[in-house]
Design a protein around this nucleic acid. Sequence first.
DNA 1: TTGTACCCTGCGGG
DNA 2: ACCCGCAGGGTAC
Length: 426
Amino acid sequence: MIFLVFISLFIDTYHRFEPIQAIMAMKRVVDWRKLPVSLTELCIDTTLRCGQSFRWRKLNDEWICTLHGRILALKQDETHLHYKVTWPERQGERSSPSSSTKDLPLRKDDTEDLLRHYFSLDIDLASLYQQWSKDDPNFRKKAPKFAGVRILNQDAWEALICFICSSNNNISRISQMVHKLCKHYGPFIGHVDGEAMHDFPTPESLNQKKVEAHLRELGFGYRAKYIAETARIIAQDKPSAWLDSLRNPDFPAFNAVAVADRPSSTYKDAQSALLSLTGVGPKVADCVCLMGLGWGESVPVDTHVLQIAQRDYRFGKKGPKTINKAMYDAIGDHFRRIWGKYAGWAHSVLFTADLREFSSRMKEEKGEGIFIKEEILAAEEIPKGKRKATVEIEKKVHVKEEDDTKETVILEIDTTVKRRRTRARP
DNA sequence: TTGTACCCTGCGGG
DNA sequence: ACCCGCAGGGTAC
């Protein structure tokens, strides 16, 4: 049996093909083009804001980002995804008399392929939603308001650095930090609305002497060291295509080239390989697996997902405050059992539904279809002589919910909570 | 195996 | 108004 591994050529594509792209860049006036996609299959308004990518910005009703050495603008209506490409400017080119809109690119423009790859448009999302809804009442309840949420097929290196930034952080600040990385270390591509657009920096550009100190000045905190060390390891210590060798072979990187006779990685292989990097724990490793390496079964478990597991999937919370690796794996396995091969995709839908930014969509649900009844099972005694104490209370919460079909479902969730109690006066 | 420091920012309750 | 505690897609020690 022959194993295939796909090696990406993404690194430095811009520089490598500079002469060709310089000619392509002469065609400055680019029309909007479109791909047929329904909002059920892809909703960019949700997908680009739900915290899996940190570089997309919405300007004047268009989503803008640099990707693979070009600037992309996206718009969407009920039937189509509209896109516009801008290739990089060259120094002094704009005033060059040879510059003309009549010149055609030498190569076929691959932006449509890039978009199909980036959004994994070959995957039938509606069928997946149907399957998850059939197997999971909670998904069936939440999903209708969050259609078209996809996992983006991002570059592994970019995902790695972005999710190192994400530790103990919020989406707003992560976006600001990633923007600073691009601005200070990424290749300049062009202007949009007078604002300079840079692509994501290469490992080499982040593997320089003063990067750590500089990133600290820029407000990266303790993550500055993680980024600098990871860049050094990827740029110096590992083979050139090491990260992409961890990809799911069924979903090769964009511009990948097949290489024969290499053992292919599994999801668990990829996860454990990533864990060897500084600043990369199980959660960050899973984010890179899911969004950067094509492993759809990867379920990143953060505090949010832990809450979802406990609140909506009766996952016991007897464990400690900080979850250990065993607990972490158990939660992932639990969701993989429910949702299957694309568990990470389903997880992303529920994660999005729980984000505060999107919570208004669920607001009307609260208090109408859901009734909660608490039943205290056991409570630790308050020590004698103390009037107040923080004690463990074990309670059983009955959640009675009605879904659209008026069918009644009873879920029981065992919980242990800390509550401040006051001893009754003698 | 469990606990704590780590950088920084926005938010809600006093 | 200001302060203060705390959480925000965790990880290293």
